[in-house]
Amino acid sequence: MPCGRWDSNLGLLQEQPLMDNWPGYDLDLFTYPQHYYGDLECVLIPHGIIVDRIERLAKDIMKDIGYDDILVLCVLKGGYKFCADLVEHLKSISRNSDRFVSMKVDFIRLKSYKNDQSMGEMQIIGGEDLSIVLCCANMLLLTLSDVVGTGRTMKALLSSIEKYKPNMVKVASLLVKRTARSDGFRPDYAGFEISDVFVVGYALDYNEYFRDLNHICIINEHGKEKYRV
């Protein structure tokens, strides 16, 4: 996916997927940590647009769930900012509605990448108390992920969750990648659809770097080599 200067004629529609020819925004239009200068190609999705999109996702979720209480299962580490922002919007909507929706948050960590390549197997860390909280009959399990790529990781996680027999499971992902390696899995709620590029920022990392970057950006080859392990 090429990156270049932002063209005001292209725009960036939140409701539409980012096409493969989307050039991204020029880095000079934004502020970002100086220690990442030279490590990025472009800003793919600015922070303000991310936050606005998450607010809309929260409204869609609250509209769909009816009167079910929610257990939010955050997939760490890359999903923590998505989770924090989405939960705040969900709470705000609930407080201003005619029925308060109870929300609980639990965390699980999936480890499947080394550098920018999938290791082909997934490690699940945490979530030991799910059997207790999922015993509630009207509890909706809302699983939050940072990125859905091939879909295999999320399917493996959902398979492990099924043993607890949750009442209802919905998946929300900030990003969905268009990739020929996809097995067809689609989350119930998605923020943005992007091409098959390696992105960092907004808690998405490359070997634990770039989590402190507010925007979602494409890392360049210099950055990959600089932080390779």
Rank of each mutant, 00 (worst) to 15 (best):
N115H: 05
S92I: 08
M62D: 10
A58R: 02
A84M: 07
K111P: 00
Q123R: 14
L73V: 12
E41T: 05
G127V: 01
F107E: 07
K63C: 12
K104W: 09
G127P: 07
I108L: 05
S97G: 13
Y113Q: 12
M122E: 01
I70Y: 08
S112N: 12
G78N: 14
D64T: 13
V87N: 11
D69A: 05
I49V: 14
G79T: 04
V43P: 14
D52E: 10
I61W: 03
F107H: 05
V51R: 14
D85K: 09
S97A: 10
N115D: 10
G120N: 03
S118R: 13
D85G: 11
L40K: 03
Y37E: 15
G78A: 13
E121C: 10
G48F: 01
D116C: 00
K63D: 13
I54C: 13
F100M: 08
S118W: 15
I125G: 00
E121K: 15
C42R: 14
G66K: 10
Y37G: 10
L130K: 00
R99V: 14
D129R: 06
S102H: 13
D39T: 11
V87P: 02
I61E: 01
C42Y: 06
R109L: 02
V43G: 07
R56L: 14
L71R: 00
S92H: 15
S118T: 13
L130T: 08
G66S: 02
Y113G: 04
D69P: 05
V43A: 07
K81L: 14
S102F: 06
M122Y: 03
F30S: 09
P46H: 09
V43F: 09
M62N: 06
V43C: 13
V51L: 13
V101N: 09
G38R: 02
K63P: 01
I125Y: 01
G127K: 02
K91H: 12
E121G: 06
M62T: 06
F30T: 09
I65C: 09
G127S: 10
S102G: 06
A58E: 03
D116T: 02
G66R: 09
V133A: 03
R53C: 05
Y80D: 02
C74T: 06
L90F: 11
E55I: 05
I125V: 12
H89I: 05
K81Q: 15
E41S: 07
K63L: 13
S94E: 12
S102C: 03
V75M: 09
D39R: 15
K91T: 07
H89L: 08
S112M: 10
V105P: 01
I45L: 10
I49G: 08
L29Y: 02
E55F: 03
V51I: 12
I125H: 00
I132W: 01
E128T: 08
H89S: 08
S92K: 13
I132T: 07
T31K: 11
L44A: 04
R95M: 11
I124A: 04
D129P: 00
D98Q: 15
D116G: 00
H35D: 12
